[in-house]
Simulated scan of single mutants.
Amino acid sequence: MIHRKQIAVISLVVVLMGLLLSMNIKGLVKPKEQRNVNGTVAGGPSAAASVSVESVSALAKPELTANFAKQVADLEEALSQAPGEKKIGLEKQLAQKWEDVNQPGPAAFYHEMVAVRENTYNAWLKTGDAFSNAQQNTQDTLIQPALGEKAINAYQKALELQPGSRDAKMGLGAAYVNGSANPMAGIQLLLAVVKEDPDNLKANKTLGLFSMRSGQFDKAVNRFKTVIRVKEDSESWFYLATSYENLGMKKDAIDAYEKSKVLAADPGLSKFVDKKVEELKK
């Protein structure tokens, strides 16, 4: 299960990089489209209102084995019949079940149900992390805005309960950058986190990705160098390689791509990197 997730992540990296390099990197929002701070179209309905635990579960259930699908169905039935004080235990079980099969979308909604009942900092922080993870692991562009909006809401509630939380600030900053049309609000939060904790992995990686999207590849290089120094991974080496390539630093790009390939040990990425290295050597 873990290996399958790693392959999916690497495949997503390739897709994401293709999107980043093909988009107009100087503009993150279409000029004629006005949006509010939560990333929804101004004057329009909330994106989150159109997505529910039922809808994301329906999309995820075809991936389950028959045995696991029955376990989930039994828990769902029990939850629908349970009195209020008994629901939270079943909601926690369902969140865990969906996490066990690497389906963060349904898991996030059940974490949210728990957070509404408990209304604690830890519950809302976990919910924010769950929705952020779900947003990053879906390629459904209709669902992504809703998941991002819910992540923002959860982190805001966590900060209301614990205003000084670095983890909540970092999560909210990343959610604004990745899931709203107000990325600069997120950048300010992330810069504040990095000022307090210069080696913060998530903050540096998110700032690095934003630098790439905005065409500031020199800044991206510095961010990903920090990430790799603290804890290297194939994804960060891949982003570093792409940043070097866009700066015209071919040798550094080749070295970084090769390092990404070794750490990933994934045939799909290896084929992509080999082709990229061949192009850079010309």
Rank of each mutant, 00 (worst) to 15 (best):
A69T: 01
K70H: 08
K70V: 08
Q71G: 07
Q71V: 13
V72R: 09
V72Y: 11
D74V: 03
L75F: 01
E77F: 12
E77G: 13
A78Y: 08
A78E: 15
A78T: 14
L79T: 08
L79Q: 12
L79G: 09
S80N: 09
Q81F: 08
A82W: 07
A82H: 08
G84H: 09
G84F: 11
E85K: 14
K87W: 09
I88S: 14
G89D: 14
G89L: 11
L90K: 11
E91G: 01
E91M: 01
L94Q: 10
K97I: 10
K97N: 13
E99I: 07
D100C: 06
N102L: 15
Q103M: 15
Q103D: 07
P104R: 08
G105S: 12
G105Q: 14
P106C: 03
P106E: 06
A107M: 11
A107H: 12
A107P: 10
A108L: 07
F109I: 10
Y110I: 11
H111M: 14
E112S: 13
M113V: 05
V114K: 06
A115W: 07
R117T: 15
E118N: 13
N119W: 11
N119S: 13
T120Y: 11
T120K: 15
N122F: 12
W124N: 00
W124K: 05
K126Y: 07
T127C: 03
G128M: 02
D129P: 11
N133Y: 08
A134N: 05
A134S: 04
A134R: 06
Q136G: 10
N137S: 13
T138K: 00
Q139Y: 10
Q139P: 07
D140R: 02
T141F: 03
L142C: 02
L142Q: 08
L142M: 06
I143A: 13
Q144H: 07
Q144M: 14
P145A: 04
P145K: 03
A146R: 06
L147I: 02
G148D: 01
K150H: 12
K150N: 10
A151V: 11
I152V: 14
I152D: 01
N153M: 15
N153P: 03
Y155Q: 14
Q156N: 01
K157Q: 09
K157C: 09
K157W: 00
A158F: 08
A158W: 09
E160R: 13
L161Y: 12
L161P: 02
L161S: 06
P163D: 06
G164H: 08
S165Q: 00
S165M: 01
R166Q: 05
R166C: 00
D167Y: 03
D167P: 03
A168M: 00
K169N: 08
G171S: 10
G171E: 00
G171K: 01
G171V: 01
L172T: 00
A175G: 00
Y176W: 05
N178V: 10
S180F: 02
A181R: 10
P183T: 04
A185E: 06
A185S: 03
A185F: 01
A185V: 00
L189Q: 04
L189R: 01
L191P: 00
A192Q: 11
V193L: 08
V193K: 09
V193S: 07
V194Y: 02
V194A: 13
K195Y: 10
K195H: 09
K195A: 15
E196C: 06
E196A: 15
E196W: 10
E196Q: 15
D197Y: 08
D197H: 11
D197R: 09
P198A: 15
L201K: 08
L201D: 10
K202Y: 04
N204H: 05
G208I: 06
L209N: 00
